[in-house]
Amino acid sequence: MHSKTLGWILLAPTLLILFLFGVVPFIYVVFVSFHQWNPFGANPNMVFNWANNYRRVVFDAQFITSLQVTAAFVFFAVTSQLILGYALAQAFMRDFPGKSFFRTIHTLPLIMAPIIVGSVWKLMTTPSIGIIPNLLSNWFGYDLNIGQSATQAFITTVVMDIWHWTPLVTLTMIAALVSLPPDPFEQAQIDGANRRQIFWHITLPMIRPAILATLFIRLMDAMRTVDEVLMLTGGGPGSATRYVGVHIFKEVFPRTNYGYGSAISVVVLYLTIVVCWLMYVGLIAPRNKGKG
């Protein structure tokens, strides 16, 4: 057939761009992370300093706190989204008028820019102008001030993430539930299984692949949440919502200590890769192997 050269020529621009803006930055950040480099410091030149930056990273209390709050955020947000998304998908599995209309509305948050989601929720929860603190204090006498209470700020970011991303889980779950064959369910009903048994022994194993794929995607996205939180709380109060991405944006990037900032970036990238890889190996790969 036609020459392979043409294929490589067609592929070349893509590979070049991804190399220049994907691979080179990766190598470069690892390279810089082993250097002392602060252009505005006493010595503006790059000096190789072994692993000194990493020596600082592992004792950086602020950074470790940001890892902890990120883990808490990811755990609460993703768990709630999966449970809520599944419940909503089940509620969608009946016949009722206007199904596609409701589905359309439900998809809407997914296309919104994260920064707009942050802005929308800021307008909702800022004490002076927001509707939520107002209603809470009028109806329940509850004081919501995300600028001051660390717990409230944390919960608000989780709720915001739930609002933004639960539809994704719902829609993937609907897709999975719709594609289930009816036979096993009818058989189970004839055999007298109750709804809980059907859920644990038939539905759950059958939609497991879809759940795992959704979990994987949501975990990856939740770990790198930045824009919304930056807009809503700016990482505050204190370090309550300073998730790793926000930490890099607010505390690491503005400082000109490039060597140390690179070391933090490398550690974050390392943790992301390890978590994704463990998820993939532990949850998704065994299923594929079992299949083939």
Partner: peptide
């Protein structure tokens, strides 16, 4: 085209999208 290692290339491209952008702020 029957390009050597094309499935690896295909998989590699998608890892670029999975990487957290915050990490690339400083190097970029």
């Amino acid at each position: 085209f029957d390009l050597g290692g094309k499935e690896s290339i295909f998989f590699w491209t998608i890892t670029n999208r999975m990487a957290p952008p915050a990490v690339f702020l400083l190097p970029l």
